[in-house]
């Protein structure tokens, strides 16, 4: 009876996150990036994905986590949105997990800040907690304020 759902999982600052696998277009290794000056700091830059220009969002910054080490290049998780593909920079990529929704719980009420808006639920798995992200909200970058 329990519905199974597949999640593409990845690591960010030691935390285990998942997004709906159907929304993920592909996962690619770090690409050289072009910075966009004056843009929000959440936007790391632009990458050339086979002739298509894709904006890369640093998920650590989006989730207001600490910046990652300079030495460990991030991975790109390219997700599809209504306005074309967007790349999410993550620390490391995990497996695609099939989980049943009876392990799902709402995010703990003690969770604060931006995470509360972006995390829709938590799966209790044997190996740890899987945090589910709301993709449509993650790719919405807050408008930058005038410097």
């Amino acid at each position: 009876m329990n519905e199974l759902k597949q999640y593409c999982t990845f690591l960010l600052d030691g935390l285990f996150f998942g997004v709906d696998v159907l929304g993920v277009q592909e996962v690619i290794k770090f690409q050289p990036m072009t910075q966009v000056p004056l843009a929000s700091r959440v936007v790391s830059g632009l990458i050339n994905l086979r002739g298509q220009i894709v904006t890369a969002i640093d998920l650590r910054r989006r989730l207001e986590l600490d910046d990652r080490d300079q030495d460990s290049p991030p991975m790109n998780v390219v997700v599809q949105t209504d306005d074309g593909p967007v790349s999410l920079l993550v620390d490391d990529i995990g497996d695609v997990l099939e989980v049943s929704d009876d392990t799902l719980e709402p995010p703990p009420p003690t969770m604060k800040g931006i995470a509360r808006e972006l995390i829709t639920g938590v799966h209790k798995l044997d190996e740890g907690l899987l945090l589910i992200l709301d993709m449509s909200k993650v790719v919405q970058v807050p408008q930058l304020k005038e410097v």
Binding site: P32, M33, T34, V36, P37, L38, A39, S40, V42, V43, G45, L46, I47, N48, G51, Q52, I53, V54, T55, I57, D83, G84, V86, V139, Q140, V141, Q143, L144
Partner: peptide
């Protein structure tokens, strides 16, 4: 000329982006 994504619409000084001969993106 390729348009910039929605995330970058608020940036005033760029009209778009393009891909250069070496595959890198230039604004």
């Amino acid at each position: 000329v390729k348009p910039l994504s929605k995330q970058l619409k608020g940036v005033p000084v760029f009209a778009g982006a393009t891909i250069m001969g070496d595959g890198r993106v230039a604004l």
